[in-house]
């Protein structure tokens, strides 16, 4: 069979080349151009650039609005990912246990992940509606006063975090469940014969087996939440009084509403570096490279 693999090196590269060209022009080149922009200042309504070195970055660190958005992004990401993974893990373990109706339960639980983000944002805004929303109605049945969920500086961000959890926990469930199903049942049977209880089996067998998947899953969800835009934009617009403004929204506003390309580019690079640094450190401490996922 050697004949067929003659010149396989060059040939293989040709198959992948079109993909690389696209990746270069649509992802790599814009990234480099963005770095270039972040060292320049652009004036309102003109795209003339003047070199300002690191000033855009220097300004960021002293910009309280930017620091506020950064802090909100950390809060938003932490709580979103924490509950996405937790709920996804619990749902996956429950689904793994049942045999009857598994498929229909899985499909129904996964629906939020399928629904377009903006449709989800619109639906939740309607659920949170202060006068006609069903959440406030249920609260009134329990004897609470109506709450202006998306208009209260203390509640707006948590209210949208709930939507973000709702949208992505099914993804966590999907990935964890697939890994759980790949664990041979003989391992569990052996543990049961040896007299292990459910908690012991979970801590000593299940958890170590799904550690790799949980690690990658957490990283992906963190990156996605860090880059989020749609829910905040469509549900609170960052308000009230910037209490729910996150970096994704701020960059969009500086770029396309205020036309401050240089400043927005610096903010975007800041976001990118944070994500990159987090990913590297995170993988270094959690991911077992030799064992793989």
């Amino acid at each position: 069979m050697k004949f067929f693999y003659k010149r396989r090196r060059e040939q293989g590269f040709l198959y992948v080349l079109p993909v690389l060209v696209i990746v270069f022009f649509i992802l790599v080149f814009p990234l480099i151009y963005n770095v270039y922009l972040s060292f320049h200042q652009s004036d309102l309504y003109s795209i003339d650039l003047s070199f300002v070195g690191l000033r855009n970055y220097y300004d960021l660190v002293r910009d309280s609005g930017f620091l506020n958005a950064f802090q909100n992004t950390l809060i938003w990401t932490f709580w979103s990912v924490f509950f996405q993974v937790l709920l996804g893990l619990v749902a996956a373990i429950l689904l793994q246990r049942i045999s009857y109706g598994k498929r229909i339960f899985q499909i129904l639980i996964m629906l939020p992940w399928i629904v377009p983000g903006i449709a989800a944002a619109a639906s939740w805004r309607w659920l949170y509606h202060p006068d006609f929303g069903i959440i406030n109605y249920l609260m009134s049945l329990l004897g609470y006063d109506p709450v202006i969920w998306l208009g209260d500086p203390n509640l707006a961000l948590p209210a949208v975090i709930v939507v973000n959890i709702w949208k992505m926990y099914p993804f966590a469930m999907l990935i964890v469940l697939a890994r759980l199903q790949a664990i041979p049942s003989s391992i569990y049977e052996a543990a049961e014969i040896d007299g292990g209880n459910s908690l012991q089996i979970f801590l000593r067998i299940t958890l170590p087996m799904i550690r790799g998947v949980l690690s990658i899953l957490t990283l992906l969800l963190t990156i996605w939440s860090f880059n989020a835009f749609t829910f905040i934009y469509a549900m609170t617009g960052g308000g009230p009084a910037r209490s729910s403004e996150i970096l994704g929204l701020r960059i969009y506003r500086d770029a396309l509403e205020n036309m401050l390309f240089g400043k927005a580019a610096a903010e975007a690079i800041f976001l990118f570096i944070i994500i990159l640094a987090f990913s590297v450190v995170y993988l270094h401490y959690t991911y077992d490279w030799e064992e793989g996922v």
Binding site: L27, F229, A255, I269
Partner: peptide
């Protein structure tokens, strides 16, 4: 290819727009 999925959309927004 895998890392391209981690690129923040915000980083691409301005250059792609221009």
């Amino acid at each position: 290819i895998l890392f391209s999925q981690m690129l923040p959309l915000a980083v691409l927004l301005i250059p792609l727009y221009m």
